[in-house]
Amino acid sequence: MSVDAVPVLQVRDLRTYFNTLDGVVRAVDGVTFDVGRGETLGIVGESGCGKSVTALSILRLIPPETGRIVGGSIRFDGRELVGLDEAEMKSLRGHRISMIFQEPMTSLNPVLTVGTQIAENVVRHLGVSWRQGLDRAREMLELVRIADAARRLDEYPHQLSGGMRQRVMIAIALSCEPRVLIADEPTTALDVTIQAQILDLMLELKEKLGTAIVLITHDLGVIAETAERVVVMYAGRKVEEASVSSLFAQPMHPYTRGLMRAIPRLDIEADTAGRRPRLQEIPGLVPILTRPIPGCAFADRCGFATDRCRAERPPSVEVRPGHEVACWETARVAEAA
């Protein structure tokens, strides 16, 4: 295997649990995936599926009072992050691995100027002078296409629009040219014309800097238009993984199929003979994660489920090259088309 083929991030059987008054929540329950160098991996799922906890686990940002990584491995550039001491994690965060969040206003410091917030990250990790840090900050603002960058350096987050704040977050996150950028719902709080600008910017900078992106979202549309490979999560588990084209052309897991049929389509005329069709519903609710789920977590809502599905957890199996699915009934599901 050539050096380039080694994934920059390897997550193996990750388990992150939280202690709550109702019991132990298995928020991430055995998740495995790789992120290739310079690749965009999408992680998609509904609320509570564990996609954000997976991201926080990679950065080791799980609050120790309530949660912890109880098992599995996270290797970044060959180096194990689970159990790595906090000082070393600190030197990685914001430097080699960065993250941007949904709501930039809550991630930015309201009492520091934009320039200060970018420069402090650069000075901290690259050990340059404050002046060089500010130069880099201006460069970064230009890179994320904020007009009049020199003036904006002295502004505070509240003086910026939502789209510009997210550009500033991206500027901070990319200021040390990280290998991996984790973006958790980066455009969910933004208007659609601004979302398009930000997604385009992220993809363009990824090309320019060679950064791999882990894009976490609930929005299959965002996934389809940005990701190269996709992990679908449900109830703390990976149920399917495939290239974006394979996933959308031939989704194999009943949950993925259900999701795709449940969304209203922007690009397809919905009415047939003047009547609005009904969307396909996924019956039932997500399982309660404090109860152990011995079988497939989707079994209770799945039309294909058998006794085996309820009793035995399906392993993730490659059904086509690069297309994995965790389902006992793959053959029947495929036939149902």
Binding site: A196, Q197, D200, L220, A224, E225, F248, R265, L266, D267
Partner: peptide, 16 residues
């Protein structure tokens, strides 16, 4: 600007 669950749409030049 709106996204749709269809990777083929990506190739279409978007007018942002």
């Amino acid at each position: 600007a709106a996204t749709a669950p269809d990777p083929a749409r990506r190739k279409r030049r978007r007018r942002i």
